[in-house]
């Protein structure tokens, strides 16, 4: 149920993000989802791509520091309150969301959100018990 996300350390310099996307394009890697969290000095770019091994090798080869983290892709009903329902379930169970961001493509009529949890197994179990659709890792890369 886990999907693997790659993250990249970036200094806050103009054009740095574009360099990453250029390197990935060059390596023929397709970006499925992307979010940048930044401070005044640096940023952490999080990516879901279709080919992790190629992406990591291409970025490391260009001198970037790259990390890998397990995240969860969740289907969110595309209607008012869809996301709220999921957050509420997690909140009630006391499970912390470290961060989340949206997927580029949809799954049918539903949106897809990427969640980063500290306690990932517990979160997945809880969501499934509440009939929230958690997307298989292998499916996420090819959606």
């Amino acid at each position: 149920m886990r999907a693997e996300q790659i993250s990249v350390f970036l200094e806050n310099k103009a054009g740095r993000l574009a360099e990453v996307t250029a390197i990935l394009a060059e390596a023929n890697v397709n970006i499925r989802a992307l979010a940048l969290a930044d401070t005044s000095d640096f940023g952490v770019l999080r990516l879901i791509v279709n080919d992790n091994a190629t992406a990591v090798a291409a970025l490391k080869n260009q001198g970037f520091t790259v990390g890998k983290t397990d995240v969860v892709a969740v289907e969110v009903e595309d209607k008012p309150g869809g996301l709220h329902r999921i957050l509420d379930i997690l909140h009630q169970a006391g499970i912390n969301v470290e961060y989340m961001y949206a997927f580029v493509t949809q799954s049918g009529n539903n949106a897809i959100m990427i969640f980063r949890f500290e306690s990932i197994d517990e979160a997945v179990k809880l969501l499934e018990a509440n009939n929230v659709k958690v997307i298989n890792g292998s499916e996420v890369y090819t959606l």
């Binding site: 350390f9 401070t39 952490v44 790259v66």
Partner: peptide, 15 residues
């Protein structure tokens, strides 16, 4: 410099 051993996907850890 941020090497792989200290890098984290979470901004708060880096801060």
């Amino acid at each position: 410099e941020v090497g792989e051993r200290i890098f984290s996907d979470e901004v708060k850890h880096l801060q």
